[in-house]
């Protein structure tokens, strides 16, 4: 698993990359009450705001961590946004991206590096 400075995690499954938010991010957000998922089959560029999370406190964006195509979204989050708090690193993945160039992931942090990053 890789981690970004935007508190996202990425997990490679074949030529797909699963993306979610870290437990640290989910704690900071507070109780999540709404998730707006990205549109399927869209090409996104690294840094695009493609997903919105609303917690009891505020709205936050999820950015595309790399260039790629959105091929699957986690519909379970639309019905049960609380999953983001319950199981951020597992059941609450947000979307799967088809990524041509996996070397884009090289610069991201390992779990230990991320733990140091959040202090």
């Amino acid at each position: 698993m890789k981690f970004t400075e935007e508190h996202e995690w990425l997990r490679v499954e074949g030529d797909l990359v699963l993306v979610g938010i870290t437990d640290h991010a989910s704690e900071q957000l507070g109780d999540v009450v709404f998730v707006e998922l990205p549109e399927l089959e869209t090409q996104v560029a690294k840094g695009d705001e493609i997903c919105v999370i609303e917690s009891v406190k505020a709205a936050s964006d999820i950015l595309a961590p790399v260039d790629g195509e959105i091929v699957e979204v986690n519909e379970a989050l639309a019905d049960n946004p609380g999953l983001v708090n319950e199981d951020p690193l597992g059941a609450a993945w947000f979307f799967k991206m088809k990524v041509e160039d996996m070397s884009q992931l090289d610069g991201f942090m390992s779990e230990d590096e991320y733990k140091d990053f959040i202090g």
Binding site: G30, D31, V33, V56, K57, G82, N85
Partner: peptide, 9 residues
């Protein structure tokens, strides 16, 4: 603003 229980609970 909140305790460990969290706003929702």
């Amino acid at each position: 603003v909140q305790y460990p229980m969290g706003v929702l609970k």
